[in-house]
């Protein structure tokens, strides 16, 4: 019974998303026909805005699919942005900067995993500790008078970037934006078509059953949190090394939390979360463009709180419709 009704709503949802996708696509094509430059600018900007959200959502869903609620993504991103920037300044290498940003995200993940999985502390408090620690450490060691040494530049693919519309949007992009797209599909494949994915989902839904099958739930959770740290770290590196070029105090601005709403909106699936992140990005980009063209003259404080408002609305509407993993937030203790 349950599966039948679930299948029915699923197919309804699919039709809905399919139709709205077609509608969105035709709007984009139409606006491209009217003014190609503005359309390309909006799409490029929405892709950039969506990148940290999509990466943060990947971190969130890898943790949550195995039953761990990670609200420390914000702090992981902040630490990663900080260390990525510092290493870039010290070594002059953007690549090393990105790598150490990722390492910082994973290190923060290890701390979070030690607290939640090994010490079985309350997961919300653990996330708060990570956020607080990140804010404190980056504030205390905040370097003054350091000059930025550049940021990651966009790369143009030969031939492909010459295509109309798709070319400049998808194939003339900076490296982290592009790798995010690949990572989304990679994680989707891994989560739904590999042994790791099956184990992760089993542990997230019903750890005791997984345990009976010989899967150590706590070990799965431990390394999933660290894998999640990879994505949060990349998101942080994106912020300081690709989007802005310098580190600023509190520069994540709640993106780690918005990413969680994005993840819920995308029903805990990577591709769904990516779609949700793109919608968020599009909303922000359109708003910026309208503001820029002086079509809208809303005070910047109101446009600035748009992402936060959307997050609340998304949460309020979709949390009941989209079902979270079964054992979410409950530490697993062997009987």
């Amino acid at each position: 019974m349950i599966t039948a009704s679930k299948a029915k709503t699923d197919s309804k949802d699919r039709i809905f998303f399919f139709l709205s996708g077609i509608l969105l696509l035709s709007i984009i094509l139409y606006s491209y026909w009217i003014s190609p430059l503005v359309t390309v600018a909006i799409l490029t900007s929405s892709l950039r805005q969506s990148t940290p959200l999509a990466l943060g959502a990947l971190c969130g869903l890898i943790c949550e699919r195995s039953g761990v609620m990670n609200i420390g993504i914000e702090g992981q991103m902040l630490l990663a942005a900080f260390f990525g920037f510092l290493v870039n300044v010290w070594t002059g290498s953007l690549l090393l900067g990105v790598i150490s940003g990722i390492a910082a995200g994973m290190l923060a993940g290890i701390i979070f995993a030690l607290m939640t999985v090994s010490m079985k502390m309350d997961q919300i408090i653990c996330g708060t500790i990570v956020n607080l620690l990140a804010a404190g450490l980056t504030g205390y060691f905040y370097p003054t008078g350091i000059n930025a040494t550049g940021k990651l530049k966009a790369y143009s693919f030969p031939f492909l970037s010459e295509l109309p519309l798709v070319g400049p949007v998808l194939f003339r992009v900076s490296p982290i934006v592009f790798s995010t797209i690949i990572l989304v599909f990679l994680v989707h494949f891994l989560l739904f078509f590999t042994q790791w994915g099956l184990r992760t989902r089993a542990v997230g839904e019903y750890p005791r059953a997984a345990d009976t099958m010989g899967i150590n739930a706590n070990i799965v959770r431990f390394y999933n949190i660290i894998i999640g740290g990879f994505f949060a770290g990349l998101a942080g590196a994106f912020l300081s090394l690709e989007a802005v070029g310098v580190f600023e105090r509190g520069m994540t601005n709640g993106r780690g939390f918005i990413a969680l709403a994005v993840m819920i909106f995308g029903k805990w699936t990577p591709i769904g979360a990516w779609g949700a992140a793109l919608l968020f990005g599009l909303a922000l980009a359109v708003q910026t463009q309208l503001q820029f063209d002086q079509v809208l003259s809303i005070p910047h404080q109101f446009t600035g709180m748009l992402p936060y408002l959307i997050t609340i609305i998304v949460l309020a509407i979709f949390i009941k419709r989209n079902r979270p993993p079964g054992s979410l937030g409950v530490p697993y203790e062997k009987k």
Binding site: Y308, I312, L315, I319
Partner: peptide, 25 residues
Amino acid sequence: SGAHEVITGIMCNYIAINITDYLVN
């Protein structure tokens, strides 16, 4: 609605900062 209070709370913090910033300006 069941929206988790941690996320909505943090979003509401940002919203409060923005609204008061506007009102004060």
